[in-house]
Amino acid sequence: MLTDLPGSPPLRRWLTRALGAALAAAAYLLCLPWDLRNRPETPGAINETSPVTALGITALAVSMLSLAAYFGFRDRLGLALLLVAGPPATLMYASFDSHPAPDAAVWPLAWGFFVLVMGAGVLAVAGFARLFRDAEA
């Protein structure tokens, strides 16, 4: 279960990677709502509220960092970045891109910032996890 992925049989290696990417996508879909537009608190209210919660962001971060540690320990750093941060970044892009232009005028900047934060976190945790591999691996 914790053997080096590049040295394992191809079927098991690619199934493990596909499962990791699917888990990262599922974590994003479960923790963050698809429609990220702000809504009025009550009909006619001036104050708006976002469907994104601190608990959802925390759960997403914990699940992504756990996957990053796992794949950083077992696989290459570039693949850990692609498998863990790639699916959430793609889903976030699709979510932001589906909004009408006036509602999401600055979404490319927000998307870029969040992708950089996710990628840096994944690379940092995956690199730290690699320190615990055997020297001959």
Rank of each mutant, 00 (worst) to 15 (best):
T3I: 15
T3Y: 10
T3R: 14
T3H: 07
D4E: 15
D4R: 14
D4N: 13
P6G: 10
G7E: 11
S8M: 06
P9F: 14
P9K: 15
P10T: 11
R12Y: 08
R12V: 14
W14T: 07
W14E: 07
L15K: 06
R17Y: 11
R17L: 07
R17T: 02
L19I: 13
A21R: 03
A22H: 04
A22N: 11
A24W: 10
A26T: 08
A27D: 09
Y28Q: 15
L30R: 09
L32C: 09
L32F: 02
P33V: 07
P33C: 02
L36Q: 07
N38E: 05
N38T: 01
N38H: 01
P40S: 02
E41H: 03
E41L: 15
E41P: 00
T42R: 14
P43M: 00
P43A: 12
G44E: 09
G44H: 04
A45E: 01
I46H: 06
I46L: 04
E48Y: 14
E48G: 04
T49H: 03
V52D: 02
L55W: 10
L55R: 14
G56Q: 14
I57W: 14
T58S: 13
A59W: 08
A59R: 02
L60T: 06
V62R: 04
V62N: 01
S63V: 00
M64A: 12
L65K: 12
L65P: 13
L65W: 14
L65I: 13
L67H: 01
A68C: 00
A69I: 11
Y70M: 15
R74G: 04
D75G: 05
R76D: 07
L77W: 03
L77D: 04
G78F: 06
A80L: 11
L81M: 10
L81A: 15
V84S: 15
A85I: 05
A85F: 05
G86D: 12
P87G: 00
P87Q: 04
P88E: 07
A89G: 03
T90L: 15
L91M: 01
M92W: 03
A94D: 00
S95H: 05
F96I: 02
D97E: 14
P100Q: 08
A101M: 10
A101W: 07
P102N: 05
D103Q: 04
D103M: 13
A104I: 00
V106Q: 12
W107G: 00
P108K: 03
P108L: 08
L109E: 11
A110K: 00
W111F: 09
G112Y: 06
F114R: 06
V115F: 11
V115C: 11
M118S: 01
M118Q: 08
G119H: 02
G119N: 01
A120K: 09
G121Q: 04
L123W: 06
L123R: 03
A124R: 03
V125S: 10
A126G: 05
A126Q: 03
F128P: 01
F128W: 11
A129F: 02
R130K: 10
R130E: 11
L131E: 15
F132W: 11
R133K: 13
D134T: 09
A137T: 13
A137D: 12
A137L: 12
